[in-house]
Structure formats: C-alpha cells, structure tokens
Design a protein around this nucleic acid. Sequence first.
DNA 1: TTATTTGAAGAATAATTTTCTTTTATATTC
DNA 2: GAATATAAAAGAAAATTATTCTTCAAATAA
Lengths: 154, 154
Amino acid sequence: MEVDKTDLKILKLLQENAQLTFKEISQKINLSITPIHDRIKRMEKEGVIEKYVTILNKKKVGTSLVVYCNITLDKQTRHNFTEFEERVTQFPEVVECHIVSGGFDYLLKVITKDMESYNQFHQQKLSVMSTVAHIHSFFVMSEIKSTTVLHLQD
Amino acid sequence: MEVDKTDLKILKLLQENAQLTFKEISQKINLSITPIHDRIKRMEKEGVIEKYVTILNKKKVGTSLVVYCNITLDKQTRHNFTEFEERVTQFPEVVECHIVSGGFDYLLKVITKDMESYNQFHQQKLSVMSTVAHIHSFFVMSEIKSTTVLHLQD
DNA sequence: TTATTTGAAGAATAATTTTCTTTTATATTC
DNA sequence: GAATATAAAAGAAAATTATTCTTCAAATAA
C-alpha cells in the first residue's frame, strides 16, 4: 500500500523523535489514537519504517574522529568487489560504504576514537586487503550538519 | 559523570533498537529495571544520548538518490564560511555537511527524489551561492553499508 | 438499496514507565 | 575495626501508555 498524506505527517514527526507517544502524535495531527497506531504498525510491517535507533554524542562516547576514504580497487572484477564489500561491512569503524561514480570505486565513512586508532584501522584492516590499490583519506575537521531526517514531500 | 561498563552495555543495545523496554534491557544485562531506568535518564540528561530517531526506507518514501558533493569556496574568508554554512544547513536535501582536510572545503551529503530534483537543487540552491567556486558531485550507485551505530569500546 | 470494505472512534485490558520506599553494597571517617 | 555516610540496586505501587476489541460512519461495489 502507499503512504498517504496522513502517513507522511506521522513519519515527519517520528523521524525527529521516535519516542513520541501515540497520544502526542494524535494530538499533533488531529486524529484519534487508533488510526495513528494502525498506520504506524502498517508502515513498520511494510518496511517504510525500517527501525528505531538511538543517536549518541560522539565526543561523549569517545569516538570523535570522522574520516572519509576514497578507495580504488586493484582490478574491477566482480570477485574483488564482493570480497572487499564482505570484509569492509564487518568493520565496526566503517559506518558507511558506497559505490560511487567518478574517479574511485568506494566511498567510506569511518569513525574512530582518535588519529592513533584510525592509523591502526588504516594499516591493519584497510591496507592489508590485497584488492585495495589506493586509499585517500579526508579528515573531518568540523561537523556542520548531520541528520537522519529525510526530506519528505507532500 | 563518566559512562561505565554497564552504561556501555545499555548504549550498545539502544543504538541498535531504541524501542527496547526497560524490562527487556534489564533481562539482557542482568540488572533490575530501576538502575536501567536511572542510568538511561542520566545519560539523556548529560547528553550522552542525543536523541531517539526513526529510520525510514529511502526507496519507499521516494528519496533514493544520494549524492556526495565536494565544494570549494571562492575565497576562504570567515565571512564566506559562515554565510555558506548558514544557508546550506537550512536545505532539507543536505543531510550532512563537513569541513574536511584536503583539496576542497566542504563535503556534503545530499539526498533527493531523483536526478531531476537533484539537478534543481544543484542549479537553484547550490550554484546560486556567490561564495561557491566549484562543485564536484559523486553519485551513489549502490549503498553497501549504512548504520548509525558507533563502535563503543569497553 | 443493500452488502462490503475501509478508516476512525471509544472503551477495556495489558504492559510499561515512573515514582517511592527499602535493601544492599561500597567507601569514609572516627 | 565499628559506625556512619554514600551510592547503587531491588521491589512494589501508581501513573501512563500500548494494545486489543467492539462499535460507528463513510465510501465503494454488487
């Protein structure tokens, strides 16, 4: 089934705060609790809502170094791609991995404690892979904006 | 106050699923509900826990084009930085904006409906800014990994 | 018109959160 | 070492919320 305008209103609220109660949501969009409940449960079932997560303060949990890596593989074979993806997905330091268009193969977002632990990650996990030909690291000096909220049009 | 080992156990669980009940958490880490409750409330207050959010399926809400932009400013003056940051932060299409080391000034993550709407964003919002000298767009062709979970060490 | 389906409302029940009191363990002071 | 404070945890009660069930109204199809 499709998401209608009422669903969008609910999603806009939930994106920002997953802890809103059915009562609060129902008051904000002028509807009783029942349809709110049913719509959310339906969207969870359909996979429109993927999950509810907790966002932590990076500094306060001791992971404040964010690095973007451009990775180029040795040879662009299916086997090399698969192997790289399987291994890189396992690393907890890698929070994002994308195949991108342009001058390199993968864009990684890596979060570690500090420069020392990033160096370890780089040397012991990334460089070690035989499929990796080239790594270029961009260090985040300041985080201007970071949100999980998608722009939902009506 | 510091986060101790028990706090870390709680955070590891909550990062993956913000909807776990106190009861469920207390069972998973062998503690009664009271300390679980108190610790979570304390970490919310201290800002260790920033927020609880809902993650939506990009395809199913009609925002499936992800683009990374490398931006170079005209002149690297404080005024130019401030102006650029203030405007770019407002755009709902921009979900991330970082100042990075290396060959350019800003790294943006932009999410839009499709190539047409990205083109509109690019032409009507990004290029328009007089401070922006150069934009290089990398299009995400495949998302291999994407998580909000930080690697917490014990 | 008469069924049928869909969405919403309200009430009852079940579960969870929150608060309060008591207990236990860990330091601290004399 | 004993007594006293302090902090953390446990348990129970109260308040709130989620879930289920039944009813009602509107839209759709036969």
